[in-house]
Nucleic acid binder design. Structure first.
Lengths: 127, 127
DNA sequence: CCCATAGTCAAGCATCTACTTAAGTATTTT
DNA sequence: AAAATACTTAAGTAGATGCTTGACTATGGG
C-alpha cells in the first residue's frame, strides 16, 4: 500500500511469441526434435523413429514447434521435410541474456557502492 | 521399414530441470517477475502490486519459479523477500546456445563443402 | 490487547496438454 | 490396379495449469 503506482494495472501482454517459444522448449521431446534438426533437416518419420510415441503425437509436437516459429517444414510428394528456423531460438536466448545482463549490471553497481563506502547500510532492500 | 535401429525406444528423461525452467519462463507473468527481481530483491506484495491478479495467484507463480530454481526466497517476520538465482537462467541460456552453435557449425561445414565442389549434387535440402 | 498487515492453505473450476486409437488421404512402388 | 508408405484428421481422455474465492495464521504496531 505504501507505493503510488498507477491505478491501471500492468497487464503483461507484449510478447506472446516468447510464451510460445519457451512453452515449446519446455518439453523434452520437442527439445530432442530441435536438437535433431539442428544437425540437419529430417522427415517426420525420421524424427518420430527414436521417440517412444505414436506418429500423430510427433506431428502434434511438430505443430507446436512450427507455431512457435522454431521449425519450418515443407511437403514434397508424400514426405514432409522439417528444418529448424534459428530466429526464434535467438529471440529466446536474447531475452534470457538481457535478464542476465541486467542482473550483472546491478551486481556491478552494488560492488561499486560497497567499494566506495565499505560500511554503509546496504542499498539492497529497494528505495 | 528401411532402418534397423534398436527396438528399445529412446525415451527422453535426462533433464527435467530444463523442463521446469522453460515451463516457468513460458508465462508472461513469471517473466515479468523475473525481470523485476533482476533489478533487485522484492517482497511478495511488491511483486504482486503491478500484476492484475490475486495474491494467491502470484504466490503460485513464485512457487513455480522457485521449483524451477529461478528464484529463492526467505521469510523474515511476516515478510517474504524474493531474489533471482541466476544459475537456472544460465542453464537455459546454455542449452539454447549449444543448439545454435551446432546449427552454425553445420552451416559452416556446408559452406565448406559447397565452396570445394561448386557444382555437385547438393548433399542437403539447403541452399 | 486489538487489529491491520503480509502471507498461506484449500477447494473449485475452466482450460490447456500430451498423449491415445481409429479411420482417413495422398503418393509411390510393385 | 493393388499394396505399401507417409503422413493427416478427428475424437477422446487423464492429468496439469492458471486462476478464483474464502478462510486462516502469524507478526508488528498503537
Amino acid at each position: 500500500m505504501g507505493s503510488e503506482r498507477p491505478i491501471l494495472k500492468y497487464v503483461p501482454k507484449y510478447s506472446e511469441s516468447l510464451d510460445r517459444v519457451f512453452q515449446a522448449l519446455a518439453d523434452e521431446t520437442r527439445r530432442a526434435i530441435v536438437a535433431r534438426l539442428v544437425r540437419g533437416p529430417a522427415t517426420v518419420s525420421q524424427l518420430a523413429e527414436p521417440l517412444a510415441m505414436s506418429l500423430p503425437a510427433v506431428m502434434q509436437h511438430l505443430q507446436v514447434l512450427e507455431t512457435a516459429g522454431l521449425v519450418r517444414s515443407e511437403k514434397t510428394g508424400r514426405v514432409r521435410t522439417c528444418q529448424i528456423d534459428p530466429q526464434a531460438l535467438r529471440t529466446a536466448e536474447e531475452w534470457i541474456a538481457s535478464q542476465r545482463t541486467s542482473w550483472e549490471q546491478r551486481l556491478d553497481r552494488l560492488d561499486d557502492l560497497l567499494a566506495q563506502r565499505p560500511s554503509e547500510e546496504p542499498t539492497e532492500r529497494e528505495p
